[in-house]
Amino acid sequence: MAVIDRDAIKADLIRILTELREDWEFSGEVTEKTGIFGDLEFESIDAVALGSAIEDHYNQQLPFAEFLTKAGERQAKDIYVGDLVNFLHENVGKR
């Protein structure tokens, strides 16, 4: 699988998150600065579901647990869409 362009990944992720929108309260624009817990009001279970949706989209298992660990280690207050895009850019297409 070829490594995918960062902009394409960003577009994919924003589309996945935007598809949820009509079902819930958040109505702002999803950008790289959007926090999944703070802005999107995700519960932890939603973050897990996001991981499975992304894996399904790219048909690839991704090291989400490692990603979450690193976010925890640097005591991140939230996980931002931009962080996720970077993570995916590093890992999608890599086996």
């Binding site: 979450l68 660990t69 925890g72 280690e73």
Partner: peptide
Amino acid sequence: GGEGDSGGEEDPQVL
């Protein structure tokens, strides 16, 4: 598993 994760531990906060 993911690559290079053998030394990792679960994250306290997210977990």
